[in-house]
Design a protein around this nucleic acid. Structure first.
Lengths: 291, 291
DNA sequence: TTGCTCCTCACGTCACGTGAGGTGGC
DNA sequence: TTGCTCCTCACGTCACGTGAGGTGGC
């Protein structure tokens, strides 16, 4: 006696919907034993429940349909199964990390006394910075102003000479709190495109999460107060600041045309300056995570 | 002097792509200050960076476009903002829970000595059971077999009389390990549709994660060995069993026609029996999670 | 003038769910 | 015969990314 199951019975045994079983057929993952050419009805054997279970197990472990198709192709365990498993595990750990990042941000948003800064007419922005390559010069300077300008002038000229200017804003890293204003250790950074041939001194700047004071217009006299506010906000939001402060110059006074800067970076006067402040923060905090 | 930004500049300042800014325009979230009717070029003010920052902050906290549209509608903080925040936080915690479930399953799959059971011709299936309502009768019985059949007969008849039979397989809960086979405390369960009017004794059976031995055909003499294997697998996979074993009767011998069972549940002989074994397991284990 | 920016379609993503409209099977 | 099951389209999901093919701006 042949004991074939109809699609609804198979679906019920497998704990999935009929639509899902049809979809797996369409994808070639789970072909019926027999299809009635008159009615189009799909018929399955009881052994199909095992194949379906293999599929749902892999789906429950977050494998995609195309991954499962590859894994189940020749009916036995492929050599790279354990590779697939461990990279899937890593992908899930990464996803969890992403969610924990979002949770941190939700919690930061929840601090209602600061909500308007993040939300209403937001002046504070949380974002992830990608790692980038930059030509940097680190130095002790007596005070802000002219010495910084001087360093940038030289550095821009050097980068321009090599034709390596990346299409991104230059910035300044304060390796000591800028509120000191005197005897500072700073690093000026000009993003560059990668070029192995060049002798220009270049370093990798790691990516990170940062809290930013969104670009403000006008002179630099405002930065101290803004940095303080930003730091205050970070503390109140329950985040841990991690790493030196940065000042990003989206639009600034450039003295010479031959830096070949894109025009949008060039301010003709102080009122056109456009500056952003950033403080890196970390997502890992007090409680340890395993794995 | 009007200082309008083009879309690319705004995008760069906001740390998003040009496509994203266009998308937010299309969604009505971030309308340009001015659109050139000749060229279609969008122009923005610097203040648009703040609105954009508000949007990216909310996106970073996993709010959807439509949620953000509502939250930002009237330009100030809506009353239900903190409600929105806390339900979003809960949603993220739930998502994390889902991912941790998947991680557990990946780790179970990784136990290669057992892989073929989950994967190759899978006889073991991991799945989530939804909570359900069932008419149940719990009793001490001397031994399996006739007393169980008797209880089911009565219960099926009672459920049929009330017209409450749900379209799902009946099952047996072993409140003690079935391997004892004598003096057992069991509960028979007939899934029912909800009906507040009826006097039929009914209870909620909580949902849970279960490991299943996929439906096997034939007599019940096989169950002991299968339960042992399943339990052994659960241990090897590093899962914690949690809760009493279950035996689900997808197809079984029903003596009377007036139970009004769907025909697919009825076996005409022992070889048509179709039975599934389930052991609940828990996802929370040794290491504690905060929140 | 060249190259960069900007424009508007149109389509793809992922694993199904949700109908619509119709037929088969007991 | 009724009601349940099954069938095949066709479309929606979510927040964009990826071209194609063409034009504007310095």
């Amino acid at each position: 006696m042949k004991d074939l199951l109809r699609i609804g019975e198979l679906a019920r045994l497998g704990g999935v919907s009929v639509k899902t079983v049809r979809f797996y057929d369409e994808q070639g993952l789970l072909r019926p034993e027999y299809v009635d050419s008159q009615t189009g009805y799909r018929y399955y054997t009881i052994d199909h429940t095992k194949r379906l279970a293999a599929i749902t197990n892999l789906r429950a472990a977050d494998f995609s349909i195309s991954e499962i198709t590859k894994l189940l192709k020749d009916g036995n365990i492929p050599d790279d199964f354990s590779t697939a498993i461990s990279s899937k595990k890593q992908a899930l750990i990464d996803q969890r990390q992403e969610i924990e990042k979002k949770l941190k941000i939700v919690e930061a948003l929840a601090k209602s006394s600061w909500t308007e800064k993040l939300f209403d007419h937001s002046t504070i922005k949380l974002t992830s910075l990608k790692p980038q390559i930059a030509h940097t010069v680190r130095q002790n300077i007596r005070h802000l102003g002219a010495p910084v300008t001087q360093l940038f002038e030289t550095a821009e000229a050097d980068v321009a000479a090599e034709g390596m200017r990346a299409n991104a804003a230059p910035f300044l890293i304060y390796h000591e709190p800028p509120t000191k204003r005197k005897n500072l250790n700073i690093e000026i950074c000009i993003p560059v495109t990668h070029n192995a041939q060049s002798n220009l001194e270049v370093r990798n700047i790691a990516g990170s999460e940062v809290a930013c004071a969104v670009a403000f217009a006008g002179g630099y006299f405002q930065t101290d107060a803004l940095f303080l506010q930003l730091q205050e906000w970070i503390d109140a939001a329950g985040l841990q600041s991690a790493g030196p402060l940065r000042e990003v110059y989206h639009r600034f006074g450039a003295d010479q045309d031959d830096y070949r800067l894109p025009p949008r970076m060039i301010a003709r006067n102080k009122h056109e300056f456009l500056t952003e402040l950033q403080i890196p923060f970390s997502l890992t905090h007090n409680n340890m995570e395993s794995n």
